[in-house]
Write a protein that binds this DNA or RNA. Structure first.
Lengths: 333, 333
DNA sequence: TCGTTGCATTGCAACGTTGCAAACTAGAGG
DNA sequence: CCTCTAGTTTGCAACGTTGCAATGCAACGA
């Protein structure tokens, strides 16, 4: 049957507690005893029962990462990095998927924290930080910019600045009819809003009139939305010589529409994306994009969560990770 | 502090056991008692401690999914589907990442099974099924074709048949210099080998000589490998008018090289990929590919694992999921 | 009246581990 | 020889939950 400390102890002729000491590498175990116990452990193939250990210790060394989708390149990369970096501190990551469903988001933040996981990293779409803050029962760090004092720690890049950079880059190439694809007025998560603010601000700064007809809304941030948004823009009769897409996926979708319409990228229409997903590095032409430092985001978030776990009462923080413009083929001059 | 059954029981004026009965929805609880207990549960915000529950019950209702990479489109999609489908049966999925490291693969299969998880779905790269079978300490289902009696359950598509289909499709378009990109003679996982067998077999069947110079090896299955393999093929002086890539990622990399060399797809070189990842649906031109039924793979694997958990002694099974050729732009006539 | 039945509720023990504090051992010093 | 100290080892209880078996209770039929 199951091999526990009990069985190992019997075999090695020591107490259960001593086996525990050896298994945990405690000091003050006689070398000879350690050897004997270790041998028994190996022979019986003892593996500690993490449930029992966690129950006793009160900590799980596990955090959960709550994202809308795990099969989306951005989140997949972020998840992968988070898992790797968490491993460095001996943490396990439990990845959860909400599909952007508000109830799921609420459940994931309210439910397991402090029970099966020590803390949560949450990237919300449909629920505001304020509400999450009310629901939470343990340490929570939000991935995404803080828009007001919310009672939760936040980690994000400066989306407004990034929006400015992306748009300004298109303007610097001489484009004057720069569209934006990705407005999401229906979402609680304000990321799209911030990028749009950056877009508008860059136009104003350059003295280029902001044409509302050049701002395309989308339901989600995936390729089909980008493709249809691009089609709508072109069909609307607006002149377009540049597009700032709020995600690379939107940009790749838009590029497909442009190709289908016989428009050349970047000659006829320059494109800038956002996220720096792998696909953009390999598209033809390669996608110019805003590259958030995802590893830094993951690391900051985990550090922040660790600090929050250590001191639940500390004032909440608003951390900003780095980003940079990556000039590739779809928008270069 | 922590709210357990004890606290709820005290508040509701019943025994701990009764609270447990209510929390688990057992029959034989008086309506009035149930109401009172439920109210106490709500007021105190009681949430069961899953560690304690699992320790006591001996089951975790959790399975782990062990894949080489979670930020690779194929595995990300598979993981997402697995999580969703597992949810239907009330299971939680713990996603683990091995980076194709043999020691990690061994650890993930040997370690947690029967402890923190009830079973494992493993997609091995570096370790053979036979070895995994020896190491395992609980129910394990391998994602990937079985090459010999291994002592483990397997779920996969018929890679040889798929390789034949892909290659035959290129031949049917009149291509006679069909290359293959993706041979991986260094890996223990035999998938590439099987697809290569299919490729050769289709050529033979069509009476087209198999030129070994047209088979390109790769280290990994990602875009850069596809790009450099394509470059090597073109530089080698071999005539090429069609390529069967063993993954879509390889194909997308190859397409980038073709574009850089000024070769048109599909006019000059037709391309067929494998996996049907989202990126291929949106590339320009859109990628013709072999589409494995990933949802079916996930479902079969979970069903199979459930059966294995229910009866650890049952003979091992070899399940075959469906696949089909998806003709898009890179190879159509 | 008394056992019988069936529902409702309960106490006890145990899952495998670790914190705590006590107990033991051997060698050093008085 | 005894005490002290430092180094080892141990027993007990508890983490929060559920399985088991027993108990209490009311209504029932004989």
């Amino acid at each position: 049957m199951s091999v526990g400390l009990r069985e190992v102890a019997a075999r090695a002729g020591v107490s259960v507690r001593t086996v525990s000491n050896v298994a945990n590498g405690f000091a003050h175990v006689a070398p000879d005893t350690r050897r004997r116990v270790q041998q028994a452990i190996d022979e019986l193939g003892y593996r500690p029962n993490s449930n029992a250990r966690q129950l006793r210790r009160g900590r799980t060394e596990t955090v959960s990462l709550v994202v809308p989708e795990i099969d989306t390149p951005y989140f997949a990369e972020l998840a992968s990095l988070t898992v790797r970096i968490a491993e460095e501190r001996g943490w396990t990551v439990h990845i959860d998927q909400t599909d952007g469903d508000p109830d799921r988001e609420r459940r994931m933040v309210a439910g397991p924290v402090g029970r099966s996981v020590d803390g949560v990293l949450c990237s919300p779409w449909a629920v505001s930080s304020e509400e999450l803050s009310r629901l939470r029962t343990g340490p929570v760090v939000v991935l995404g910019e803080r828009r007001a004092a919310s009672g939760l720690d936040h980690v994000a890049i400066d989306n407004v600045a990034a929006g400015v950079t992306a748009t300004a880059h298109l303007l610097s190439l001489g484009r004057r009819r720069v569209a934006a694809i990705g407005a999401q007025p229906h979402l609680h998560n304000g990321t799209a809003r911030l990028r749009l603010d950056g877009y508008r601000s860059a136009l104003r700064e350059a003295g280029v009139p902001v044409a509302e007809g050049l701002v395309a809304r989308v339901q989600t941030l995936h390729r089909p939305d980008g493709a249809s948004a691009m089609a709508r823009l072109l069909d609307s009769g607006e002149q377009v010589d540049g597009v700032f897409c709020f995600t690379d996926e939107l940009a790749l979708g838009a590029m497909r529409t442009l190709a289908e319409r016989g428009l050349r990228v970047p000659e006829d229409v320059a494109v800038v994306g956002f996220d720096d997903i792998v696909d953009g590095r390999w598209s033809v032409p390669a996608l110019t994009t805003i590259s958030p430092d995802k590893a830094q985001i993951a690391r900051m978030a985990l550090d922040c969560l660790a600090a929050r776990i250590a001191d639940p009462a500390a004032p909440d923080r608003d951390l900003v990770a780095a980003h940079r413009l990556l000039v590739r083929e779809t928008a270069s001059g």
